[in-house]
Amino acid sequence: MQIVEDSIVGVRAAAITLSRHETPLRFQLYPMLHIGDRGYYREVTRRLRDCDLIVAEGAPDTVATRALTLSYRLAHRNKAMQVETQSLDLLTLGKRIVIPDITTTDFEAGWQRVPLRTRAMITFAAPLYGLWLAAFGTRRWIGKHAALDDLKTNEEALTEAPDDPLAALIMDTRDKLLVDELLRIHAEHHDEPMTVAVVYGAHHMRAVTSALNAVHGYRARDAEWVMVLAY
């Protein structure tokens, strides 16, 4: 199943509805990209008005997270690309919002477990890459690295480093927090006709679809493309 598609028309993210026949609760997944057209974020916001509960990411603001995100935060300075960094004003929607994300304390502890060499490389490379995007980046360059399926590619599997503390911090820990919250929501509300919107980074949707299917049999019943970046 495609989560994010890169095609001749541009980059599109799938708004995926997960449900099961036994109960009325459903989950709508909004795999987020941190760079996109203004219309992309407006469309996601519009769709969220129809949900009952929003489950969103909210990583802490630390020196390390600012370094990790600097590359795409600088990209919007490229006037030729005409892109924006992720902007969703969820509080204006008047919905209940749950943020199952890593705490500042846990993030900083995990960051210290990342080898010093890796931390130094990220701190040095992220602003350089961000400046490159700001000066020379293109929409097609972003799209080339955005495509994502629910299953890992052979290339991803071969290049993954076992016991990678950075991947554990950025992905694995946060995946577990997100999945645990969604399983809790199912336990409390599965008999209610609720729509739960999951607004989280695209790569985390792999863990969501896998866990909800494996534990409770939720399947993708519907999906609609939302344009992220038009070419």
Rank of each mutant, 00 (worst) to 15 (best):
L91F: 12
P31C: 07
T103H: 08
R140D: 13
D172Q: 11
T159I: 13
L151I: 13
A56Q: 06
L151M: 12
V228H: 00
A157W: 13
L178K: 03
G110A: 04
H216L: 10
D89W: 03
Q82N: 15
A223C: 11
A109F: 04
T138V: 02
L183G: 04
K95W: 01
R113Q: 14
G10Y: 07
A211D: 02
R219N: 10
M205T: 11
D180F: 08
L166N: 00
T159M: 13
G110C: 03
L182W: 05
D37M: 14
A67L: 07
V226W: 01
L158V: 11
Y41N: 10
H76L: 05
A211V: 05
L148H: 02
V9D: 15
Q82R: 11
L116H: 08
T209P: 03
A15V: 03
I122A: 03
L68E: 00
I170A: 10
R184Y: 09
M32P: 08
V215S: 07
T138K: 07
R49E: 15
L148R: 01
L183R: 00
D149V: 01
I8G: 12
R47C: 04
T17N: 10
G130H: 04
D149S: 14
D163P: 02
P100C: 11
T123I: 06
L48I: 06
E160F: 12
Y218G: 07
D175K: 06
V198L: 08
C51K: 01
Q82T: 09
M205C: 14
F136W: 14
A13H: 04
V198C: 06
A214Q: 15
R119I: 00
G58F: 02
L229Q: 06
L29G: 08
L91H: 14
E160V: 09
T62M: 06
E192R: 15
N213V: 06
